[in-house]
Structures are given as C-alpha cells and as structure tokens.
Amino acid sequence: MESEKKLSNKIDGSELQPGDHIYSWRKLKTYAHHGIFVGEDKVIHFTSSKADSGYSSTATVSKNVSKKKPCTKCGYDGKAGVIETCLDCFLKGGELYRYGYNISRRRLMFTRFGTCTSVSCGPVEDTLRRAYDYLKNGYITDYSFLEKNCEDFAVNCKTGLTVPTGADTNTLSGQPCFLRLMEKPYLLAAYPIVRIHEDSKLRKICPKH
C-alpha cells in the first residue's frame, strides 16, 4: 500500500496533489487541523472561531465574525465555516502531513488517532466535487469538535462517509477519541486494540453521504 511505504505522514509541499487530505499539528501536537488540498496553493477546510486556535469541545461556527487582518495572498480574514485559503494560512507555520487511507490493521494499531484510517478513499474527482460543493453550500452541520470537526469534513470529502451523531451511537471521530483515551490512562495498555476497534466501529456505521 502506498501509504505504508513511509513511517511518517510528513511530506514536502512539492509532493502535494489535488484531492490530498492534509493536516498540520497545533498546540504541541495536542490536535491537528485537517483540510483538502485542491491545487494552486489552495486548501478547503472546515473551521470554527475556536477550533483552529485551541481545543474546545463546544466550539461552534461564527461565519460572520472576523477579527483578523486579511491575508495578502488569499484574502482570508478569519471567518469560519467551510473556507478556501492559501496553504500558508492553513498551516499557520506548522509542518505538512498527508492523511493515510487503506491502512492495514497491522500498521493502524500503532498509529495515532487522527492521522490515518483503514477506510479506502474514492476518486480524486469525487473528493474535489464534495469539497467545492461544501464550500459553496456549507457543510452538512455546524462545527463540533466531538461530532463534526475538520477531520470528519476531510474524511467525508475523501470517502463520502460521515460520523453519526447522537448519544445512542457512542461514537467519536479520531482526535476526540485520542483525547478521551488520554483521560483514561488504564486503557493505554490496550491502545492497539482500542485503535482498531474505534476505527472499525466508526466507519462501519457511518452512512454514505
């Protein structure tokens, strides 16, 4: 599998291809921001007024709030929602990583939540179509770190899958799973099993979008 030829997902900007699901770590790698590279130095990503500056389980989108001086390259001024910005605004000084798809269980069990999945992705054309559709019409729901965040958005663009919501599902996406696991140190010994179980559970019950 192509994604398993490298031990790290870190890439150089010259390796980027339209349709790539990319991410960049924030706040000492406590979480990462995710998006879809669409070519010509542009990234479409899903963000809230708080989600891209620090962890918040209750962050919501404030599309009309803007306090940032517009970027001279892409014009991004801090507004939230589904946005298109230059790569520099997406990275915010961080390093560039490519999210892995179709990862074997053997490797998945030793990877961090929020960096890859065992699910296969669809054609690049479908990824770009979904990303631009969400940019034009908005995402399927408001931003929520626990239920619908930037990683879920990017995975949806790549696969057509979406994280189910509601207390009855007992399902979280990759990064919230990792943070919840850190709250229960006694589960760390079983990390490989938990990693595979959560990835499998999440993707099996996700409806196609």
Rank of each mutant, 00 (worst) to 15 (best):
I83E: 08
R26Q: 03
K42W: 02
A80E: 10
T141I: 08
E4Y: 08
T58K: 14
K5W: 10
T162A: 12
C157V: 07
V43L: 04
M109L: 12
A167E: 12
H197I: 07
D133T: 08
F90A: 02
K27R: 09
S173H: 07
K73V: 15
V194H: 09
K148L: 10
T159W: 00
G35T: 01
V163Q: 10
E15Q: 11
A190L: 13
K5M: 15
L7S: 09
K68W: 09
S120W: 09
T169P: 05
E15R: 00
S56L: 07
T85A: 05
T165V: 15
T159C: 01
C157T: 01
T117H: 01
D12N: 13
S24A: 10
Y191P: 02
E151H: 03
V119M: 12
S24K: 06
C71K: 07
S120K: 15
Y99L: 04
Y55S: 09
K136D: 14
E183C: 14
F153I: 05
T115I: 08
R106Y: 11
G81P: 04
K10V: 13
S120A: 12
F37W: 02
T30F: 09
S118R: 04
L179I: 15
R112F: 02
T165C: 14
T111C: 10
H34V: 06
K10N: 07
S66G: 05
D168M: 11
G94S: 11
S118Y: 02
K29I: 00
P123G: 04
P164Q: 04
A32T: 02
C86D: 08
N64M: 12
C71S: 05
D41I: 04
D126W: 04
Y31D: 01
K29H: 13
L96Y: 00
R195T: 03
L202S: 01
K208N: 10
L202D: 06
T60L: 06
C71W: 00
G138T: 00
T165K: 15
I83M: 01
A32D: 00
R180Q: 14
E183M: 12
D41P: 07
V38C: 00
D199E: 09
